[in-house]
């Protein structure tokens, strides 16, 4: 028998008996970031492709929720900081090696853009909107003229934001479960999937819903592929990573992960979407809600399980 114990009573609740530094705030923040990234990605994409009218919800309606969810996300992040009054120190330096840092800066770019995007489309929701001041109108006109540039910036930064939500974890090779480069693409995919689902949910246009559902199906397939790939990677790796994978393969996270994330969040909505595409009638909101739920759970479970996986002791 091998017994490895800390005998000096290290009782720091944030690191013992396992890391417990991040609670609901961080996965929520990452989910909201991913969701916003997903929505804004499609908005920018269709704008660049000139399909604003075909994908009216994606381009003009869904982005309206993004400033709110980004702000809620930032509030969650702020909430989690233990030294809150020093928050501004984040923006005194850019540190490219630190995902936290470039995540913060990415949000610094994406959040204002999301506001601008909404401003440009405000008349879709409030047809009588008037900017009142002339200079505001001029600024608006300026943005409108450069909508393509903005779209490109948004497209790129929403991808960065989407990847960032995963890289934040995968940069930590101290936690074997997070120590996989697949988390970046997986979280990006999950964000896009949630974004697509949000559009489906909000859209009243059958064509748009069908198109987004198709895209979602593809993304879900990619996610499943990535997940399988991730576990194969773990199992072929060192003992600590095998242990990490075992959290999901018989360990305490097995049920939540396979049931909530994979079955309810991916397989089940995929089946619903396929059935819907085949013409079966059912309430159209079930599948997208499940997808978003799955995406949220993925963040929670990876955040919590990752903190339980460790090298020592």
């Amino acid at each position: 028998m091998k017994e490895e114990i800390i005998t000096s009573g290290r009782m720091n609740p944030y690191i013992d008996p396992h890391l417990n530094i991040w609670h609901w705030q961080i996965p929520l923040y990452l989910f909201l970031g991913g969701l916003a990234a997903g929505i804004l990605f499609f908005a920018a994409l269709y704008t660049i492709q000139g399909k604003q009218d075909k994908y009216r919800t994606a381009v003009k309606i869904a982005p309206f929720i993004t400033p709110f969810i980004l702000i809620i996300g930032l509030i969650a992040l702020f909430w989690d900081l233990k030294h809150k009054l020093y928050f501004w120190q984040l923006y005194t330096t850019i540190r490219f090696e630190s995902p936290m840092s470039w995540g913060a800066w990415t949000l610094m770019v994406v959040t204002p853009l999301s506001f601008i995007w909404c401003a440009l489309n405000i008349k879709v929701i409030f047809p009588d909107w008037d900017w009142k001041f002339q200079w505001v109108k001029e600024v608006e006109a300026f943005f409108r003229r450069n909508i393509l540039v903005i779209s490109w910036i948004l497209l790129i930064f929403s991808l960065i934001l989407g990847v960032y939500t995963g890289i934040l974890f995968s940069a930590f090779n101290a936690r074997p479960l997070w120590n996989t480069s697949i988390l970046g693409p997986l979280f990006l995919a999950s964000g896009l999937s949630a974004g697509a689902a949000a559009i489906v949910l909000l859209s009243k246009d059958h064509f748009e819903r069908v198109q987004m559902a198709k895209i979602d199906l593809i993304i879900i397939a990619v996610e499943l592929f990535l997940i399988i790939h991730m576990f194969m990677g773990f199992l072929a790796s060192t003992q600590v990573q095998i242990d990490a994978a075992n959290l999901f393969l018989g360990g305490p996270y097995t049920t939540p992960f396979w049931l909530f994330v994979v079955m309810l969040g991916m397989v089940f909505p995929a089946i619903l979407e396929i059935l819907e595409l085949r013409g079966y009638k059912m309430p159209h909101y079930i599948a997208p809600i499940l997808v978003m739920f799955g995406s949220l759970m993925l963040r929670f479970i990876i955040a919590y399980a990752g903190q339980e996986s460790r090298w020592l002791y």
Binding site: I21, K82, M100, A174
Partner: peptide
């Protein structure tokens, strides 16, 4: 200390669990 925002990233990043809040 006065530059630290308490984000916890370093705590999560240390393979030795050497840091505390």
């Amino acid at each position: 200390h006065h530059k630290c925002i308490g984000c916890g990233a370093c705590i999560a990043s240390c393979p030795y669990d050497a840091r505390y809040s």
